[in-house]
Amino acid sequence: MAERVELVLPAVDRPDATTPTPLGRLTVPGQAIPEKTVSVDPDEIARLRDAARAVAARAHAPYSRFHVGAALIMADDPQRRVIAGANVENASYGGTICAERTALTQAASLGFRKLELLVVSCVATLEAAVADRSPCGICRQVIHEFGSREPETLVIVDGGGEGALGDVFDLERLLPYGFSLGQG
């Protein structure tokens, strides 16, 4: 069993970019996220990665053939059980649900509301750029809704490849301007 390791999530510091126009200025909001250190258990990440890969094989993806699995642990689950979900497509497209939301709705159905760790695996794109294997916009917002600052919610995107566990995101790096109804 591996010991917990400390990860440093680097600071992001981009100033606003403002351009004047004859009708008023246009601003591209910058972003300032401080550096932070988080503690992770590589064994737990590997266990969730393996569960996400396994459930991805059972995805119902007859249209896209893009099989995705997600596995998570909720901070408010005293048993710390692994809850997994696969994407389930539907011919109406609007009825499709992604793996991340499948796992989170199962967790919510069990009464849990505080996401601690989520691992996503897109088995067909493990070697691709992170943009081709990371959560979609709707999933990012749902993750944000269940996210937590204590303990810090982390999302790991399976990186595949020899010796890789994945790419790590906290809530601010996953969805910088997540909608929250003013609840912080």
Rank of each mutant, 00 (worst) to 15 (best):
A51I: 10
L115P: 08
V40G: 07
V5C: 00
L171W: 00
P78C: 06
R149F: 05
L181N: 10
S121W: 05
V38N: 06
G24P: 08
G147D: 02
V157W: 02
V123M: 10
E162A: 11
R173Q: 10
K114E: 10
A129I: 00
R80K: 15
I138F: 11
G30S: 08
L118Y: 00
R58Q: 15
S134A: 11
L104Q: 03
E172W: 02
N90F: 01
A54Q: 13
A46D: 09
K36C: 11
A11P: 14
V82Q: 01
K36R: 15
E35L: 03
P62E: 11
R49W: 04
V142C: 03
A75L: 01
L126R: 09
P20Y: 00
S148L: 05
R133C: 09
E6Y: 00
G166E: 03
A59I: 13
T153K: 00
A17W: 06
D77K: 02
H144L: 12
L26I: 15
A108Q: 10
L23C: 02
I97V: 15
Q31G: 09
P10Q: 00
M74D: 07
A131C: 06
G159Y: 04
P22N: 05
F146I: 05
T19P: 00
E3W: 00
V68L: 12
V55P: 04
E162V: 13
D13Q: 09
A128E: 14
L154H: 03
R173A: 06
E162W: 01
D170A: 12
S180V: 11
D170Y: 02
V119I: 11
T102K: 07
R149G: 14
E6L: 13
R47G: 08
V8Y: 00
A108C: 00
G94C: 01
E44M: 12
G111S: 06
V157T: 14
L7C: 03
D41W: 01
A2T: 13
A70L: 02
R49K: 15
L9C: 01
R25Q: 12
V38K: 02
T18S: 13
I45T: 01
P42Y: 06
P22H: 04
V12T: 15
G178E: 07
L72V: 14
F146P: 06
I73D: 02
G178C: 05
D167A: 11
D158T: 10
I45M: 04
V8R: 11
V12F: 06
R47V: 12
G159C: 05
A124E: 13
P10E: 06
Q106T: 14
D43H: 11
A84R: 06
A46T: 05
R173E: 02
V68C: 13
E162H: 06
R133H: 08
